[in-house]
């Protein structure tokens, strides 16, 4: 068995690794004593993308480059990755929770016959085993899990693990093993891009502004959007707001929506139902604005204002503008 911790690269589909990889590589480096290796399946890697991975802590990059690997299809990726695993025997295989890796890592673990821990928020070595911490029951409890054998396969919740400082100028060590991609039966027929809001993607954002039934109607989300654009936040919503048709489902935060873990979450007119908390309770700092002092969201908020959001949001927007010199 080898000692390296592999990190499956998530990229922007244009040859650049996403910044969440800094978190995964830092964590892998910490656990392996500096043996964090990136494994990049892609149709085309940009040279400065390779540099970025090295700066973020990849001691080696396994580059698997082929047009047949794009778009992502489990049937094409899993055999390629599994072949490299049997040749090199990594100790662990980690990746960020993303739309494709949540499927890929699960399939890969099944192919390898090993355990898979999804959506972990903590990883620690206990002697020679790895123990992962994961929220379960909609985040109401934490579960510590461990593996029967290596490689340990796990996905890491974005924004939870700390990214170390990049090491500029660190040269990438790139290995290009030979491989063959099996034919995939899936074909991509269409990609529908969302109309860009100009705001960050919900699951990747450091700051999230979120609105609930208290917004009273779809037209009022404008005030949240202007607050969001001042601070550079993504805009999310409660299920009540989504079910009312005020926001598309992809903006829903919670048990049946997206799980987010931003540095700062600001909730307006959201009561804080248990299913909503499931999607945001690992946020670092939580702010709640609600006119009902008994709203359950205040129980988990670090800061709260009891008041009418239609007065508080504009006042907050002004204060943030002053602070940020906008």
């Amino acid at each position: 068995m080898g000692t390296a911790f592999w990190c499956i690269v998530e990229d922007d589909r244009k040859g650049q690794p996403k910044k969440v990889m800094a978190e995964v590589l830092t964590e892998a480096g910490r656990l392996s004593g500096g043996q964090a290796e990136a494994v990049w399946l892609t149709d085309k890697a940009a040279p400065d993308g390779l540099e970025r991975l090295a700066e973020w802590g990849a001691s080696k990059i396994w580059l698997l480059e082929s047009p047949a690997l794009a778009p992502y299809r489990g049937e094409a990726w899993v055999p390629v990755a599994a072949a490299l695993v049997s040749a090199r025997a990594p100790k662990a295989i980690l990746g960020p929770v993303t739309s494709r890796q949540r499927e890929f890592l699960a399939r890969l673990a099944a192919r390898l016959g090993v355990g898979f821990a999804a959506d972990t928020v903590g990883l620690e070595l206990d002697g020679d085993t790895l123990v992962a911490t994961r929220p379960v029951y909609a985040g109401k409890l934490l579960s510590k899990v461990t593996w029967a054998k290596t490689p340990w396969v796990a996905s890491l919740r974005p924004n939870v693990f700390k990214a170390g400082d990049p090491q500029p100028g660190r040269a990438p060590v790139v290995e290009r093993p030979s491989f063959t991609v099996p034919d995939a039966t899936l074909t991509l027929v269409e990609r529908r891009e969302e109309v860009s809001t100009g705001l960050p993607e919900l699951t990747e954002a450091d700051l999230v502004v979120s609105g609930g039934r208290g917004l009273k109607g779809p037209e009022n989300f404008v005030i949240l959007e202007s607050l969001a654009s001042v601070v550079g936040a993504a805009v999310g919503a409660s299920r009540a707001a989504v079910d009312a048709g005020w926001r598309p489902h992809r903006f829903q935060i919670g048990q049946t929506g997206r799980t987010i873990s931003p540095k700062l979450y600001l909730g307006f007119g959201i009561s804080g139902a248990i299913q909503h908390l499931a999607g945001m309770r690992t946020s670092k700092v939580i702010v709640a604005v609600n006119k009902d002092p008994e709203a359950p969201i205040f129980k988990i908020a670090d800061y709260g204002i009891v008041g009418d959001l239609f007065e508080v949001v504009p006042a907050l927007t002004e204060e943030f503008k002053k602070l940020l010199g906008k």
């Binding site: 821990a117 002092p293 988990i300 709260g304």
Partner: peptide, 22 residues
């Protein structure tokens, strides 16, 4: 045997109490 097993279930660590700004 399962490949992944639960070592322990835990309650959430309490969040430090928040502050209402009046």
């Amino acid at each position: 045997p399962p490949q992944l097993s639960v070592v322990r279930l835990e309650a959430l660590p309490p969040r430090s109490p928040g502050r209402i700004i009046g």
